[in-house]
Design a protein around this nucleic acid. Structure first.
Lengths: 189, 189
DNA sequence: GCTATAAGTGAGCGATCAATCACTTTAGGC
DNA sequence: GCCTAAAGTGATTGATCGCTCACTTATAGC
């Protein structure tokens, strides 16, 4: 038997970069094979179809980010600190791996529906943190999904602008402003 | 000569709905022709290519929304009122025409680069309003593009959640919360 | 009514691309 | 050193899809 795990990682890496740069529909299986320096047929030793590759990539990366966030806030008790830590992690992640963010951003359409309710995701981690803070009386009573969406928007939309070249600085530079704004959304001073 | 303007509108309407529902790449020119109840070849009497149709649709709708916003805040003087009026308009627009929002959302990738700097867009209107308020000392000094992005995120991200079924209520119901949060982002009480 | 011109039609073409499959290569177990 | 099973190959295929083109239909101006 041969070990295909290295090849699988090469496929995932090449696919991620190409999907982020050109979009999923515009990236052919030939492109992916070329980027990974393997034959086109090899892709199909690891994935049943291009669709399965896209879905597998999305779900594993999306869950991975959720797990990372959950691990980071486990040590923090106050909601303000949890928000700050999550935003800080996002800033680092985005600066260090823009293709990852871009891929998740533009494949959410059509993939988000395959996310089960029980799955740990960046969104679920944020919402649960907000829910706990509401139960503790630290945040006003309002739909926690709505609050989570608004906080997420504050952090993600500038990243979208950054991807499209409207904002040019390192994302770290925005860290303090983002935290301030996220607190403002939740009514924390 | 025959008048093709009705047919053109039917093409635009069918394309908008299909693009929003299935995505651009997944929508064929046959689909569009079927949706508009015309022959496939007729599309090419009005647009040179499918790409041109997508770009023309995006640019005209994006500009249209910018013009609408600009007209609405012209009467308002204070930044708080301007923000409130813009959010109110967005809520109405979204509830009444979700395909429009969905289309703009998922075609921004790849189309946003064809937007010239001089063009009036929802983003430019928001940024200019924030800039003026900064000049008047009503909002703290910070990158106006960043502030605009954060405010936009507060309003748009819940709409994204709504499109994907995570938030189910009418968007009007969120109006007050959205305004409160947007003010919070800008440090207005 | 005749003509010119643009709009509308849909079968068909050429290109593209995901997926297959017969074949080759590699390596762990014996 | 041989066997086996999985990994890797790449030419091929069948289907899809954007776009064309020869033709028909409608209408405004005369």
């Amino acid at each position: 038997m041969r070990d295909g795990s290295v090849t699988r990682k090469k496929i995932n890496q090449a696919a991620l970069e190409l999907f982020a740069r050109k979009g999923v529909a515009e990236t052919t299986t030939r492109d992916i094979a070329g980027g990974a320096s393997i034959a086109e047929g090899t892709i199909y030793r690891h994935y049943k179809s291009k669709d399965e590759l896209v879905q597998s990539l999305f779900l594993s990366l999306y869950r991975e980010q959720g797990d990372l966030l959950a691990a980071r806030i486990r040590n923090e008790t106050g909601i303000k600190e949890q928000i700050a830590v999550m935003i800080n992690l996002f800033c680092h992640l985005f600066d260090e791996n823009r293709p990852l963010f871009t891929f998740l951003l533009l494949t959410q359409h059509g993939q988000l529906e395959s996310v089960s309710d029980e799955m740990v995701t960046p969104v679920s981690v944020l919402r649960e943190a907000i829910s706990r803070a509401q139960a503790a009386g630290q945040i006003r009573q309002a739909d926690p999904d709505l609050l989570a969406a608004m906080v997420l928007g504050v952090v993600v939309q500038p990243a979208v602008f950054s991807v499209y070249g409207r904002l040019k600085q390192s994302y770290q530079d925005f860290n303090a402003e983002l935290v301030q704004a996220a607190w403002g959304v939740l009514g924390l001073t």
